[in-house]
């Protein structure tokens, strides 16, 4: 009970000290909180943009994850079904569908339109039986195709190889860009928080000296700095929420044609589309606050350990 009171009393002390410092170094506080707010805000926009890209690419990708396996002309239906079972066992294969050569001809006929009757033209159905294989994602199609091609009775495996390659490149570059920019922003935010706490330590050097002399533990001396970092996080997160609210208000106030989001990889993802994904609900608020407080608190721990050492 006594130690609980002691801890609560220390926490109250940390909070008071942190608030005194936030007030004492007002300009530094404003600069740091603004940076955190913008950093988290940009993170949110990046994640929304990434989500929009992914939605688009998943939709496009659905066309790219299919392979068409043409069997040798002498392969009958039974052989095709055996082969289908074999292919189904391969990793990354979701579905295998047998396409009878008559069905294949119908499809081909539909592609050419009814103006050219193919069967009349060639006198018989020249197509082999085929299998339509669906993989888990376009990235796996190349490997699947190579394995299927080695199987007996397989004549040819077709898939949009260049499109798949381009798809994989785009997905990779978006992920890489998002990770790199997120890390860069986190580093900038960390440097600013570190410097804000350095100013705080300098401003509090007398307090720190007194604390050390009257027997405060090193973590008690660091406590107000950690609390300060946490408060930066809370204020920064709230700043992000205010920014998001402002953007949504702007979105509602201006006509749709005037603004267009130009992503780093193209200009067809509409700015509006990203904002439409924002809903300031309890999940969004808690995600933003947790991200902001986590980043600030982590920076504060590193800064406190570096700046305040046991004497």
């Amino acid at each position: 009970m006594c130690s609980v009171v002691s801890w609560l009393s220390l926490l109250a002390f940390f909070l008071e000290e942190a608030l005194v410092n936030l007030r004492r170094h007002g300009l530094v506080t404003i600069a740091t909180v603004t940076t955190i707010a913008v950093t988290i805000g940009v993170w949110v926009l990046f994640s929304l943009e990434a989500r929009a890209w992914e939605k688009f690419l998943v939709w496009e990708g659905q066309k790219l994850e299919r392979l068409c396996v043409f069997l040798k002309p002498d392969a009958d239906k039974k052989t095709a079904e055996k082969l289908a079972e074999q292919i189904q066992k391969l990793p990354y294969v979701v579905q295998v569908k047998f396409v009878h050569k008559d069905e294949g001809l119908e499809k081909l006929q539909r592609m050419f339109g009814n103006s050219v009757p193919l069967e009349d033209l060639v006198g018989h159905n020249p197509l082999p039986h085929a299998l339509e294989v669906t993989c888990t994602s376009p990235q796996e199609t190349v490997e699947c195709a190579a394995k299927i091609k080695q199987m007996p009775m397989v004549d040819e495996v077709t898939f949009p190889a260049i499109a798949v390659q381009r798809y994989v490149q785009i997905v990779r570059s978006i992920r890489w860009r998002n990770h790199a920019l997120s890390i860069l922003l986190a580093i900038i935010a960390f440097i600013l928080i570190f410097n804000a706490l350095r100013v705080s330590v300098y401003g509090r050097r007398n307090e720190i000296r007194i604390m050390q002399l009257v027997g405060a533990t090193v973590w008690t001396v660091r406590g107000p700095l950690l609390m300060e970092g946490l408060l930066y996080g809370v204020l920064g997160g709230l700043g992000t929420l205010v920014l998001a609210k402002l953007l949504l208000a702007l979105n509602a106030a201006f006509p749709q044609e005037t603004t267009c989001w130009t992503g780093l990889l193209g200009s067809w993802v509409e700015w509006r589309m990203l904002l439409n994904d924002i809903q300031i609900d309890s999940v969004f608020v808690s995600q933003v606050l947790l991200l902001s407080m986590g980043l600030s608190f982590l920076s504060a721990i590193i800064a406190a350990v570096r700046l305040v050492r046991a004497v």
């Binding site: 002691s6 801890w7 307090e207 009257v214 405060a216 008690t220």
Partner: peptide, 8 residues
């Protein structure tokens, strides 16, 4: 202040 930092 001297007492507060020791958790009094």
């Amino acid at each position: 202040f001297a007492l507060r930092v020791t958790g009094a």
